[in-house]
Amino acid sequence: MASDKPAVDRRRFLADAARGACGAGFLALLLGWAAAPSRTLAATALRPPGALPESEFLSACVRCGLCVRDCPYDTLRLADLGAAATAGTPYFDARKVPCEMCEDIPCVVACPTGALDKRLKDIDKARMGSAVLVGHETCLNVLGLRCDVCYRVCPLIDKAIRLETRHNERTGRHAHLIPVVNTDACTGCGKCEHACVLEEAAIKVLPAALAKGRIGAHYGLGWEEKARHGDKPFVEGIIDLPDRGYTPPELPRAPGREFRP
């Protein structure tokens, strides 16, 4: 009987080990479920400058808050449980406090883990998100009034945001000055969203991919293709026929009525 004991012990050990492994797997699955919703950042939460892409960020950021402490404008906060970002991670809500785009980027310097990438040396190259005019029915400039506040507060005025002139059909004699964001230059600092005078901002910083949209690879723009091909036609040997169609007759115009059809 005594000779059975080691065998029993070994069987017991193996069973314990197997149960332990199953338990660890069970827990890993539970944690996986808990992690699933945190994988995408809510559109209202912006990461500090230099933050790695969200999935990498969550493997890097230890939630120490050193970036929060070193932000001189109290822009950043650590997310509470149930906030827009994963609990404990740093984020900011541009409508409350935007990023002031410090030249020395103290938040990035403070990060001990590389979750905020130290290769970011020029704050103008930060891409925290991208502003986009979402309130096309509420933006005062689109309504034909002059507000321009978002345009004027932009640290990259005329690069990241410009005013585009459109004819005002309603009055017939004025212009709309539409705020248009250039996503290639916008840092996503959120100063425009912060400054928007409306009750709910008409311009908002969103994750760049959301803000920008995407045309799709198969789509070519005729005029760009043409510029790329120089004067040559798209397809060799194609005959460019003259455009022909309806030509409106010359009508006599009453003097002084050009602007009021």
């Binding site: 944690l31 992690a35 945190s38 994988r39 230890v62």
Partner: peptide, 10 residues
């Protein structure tokens, strides 16, 4: 497996 600091979620 999940590529994130898992225990910090809870």
């Amino acid at each position: 497996v999940g590529g994130s600091i898992a225990w910090e979620l809870v």
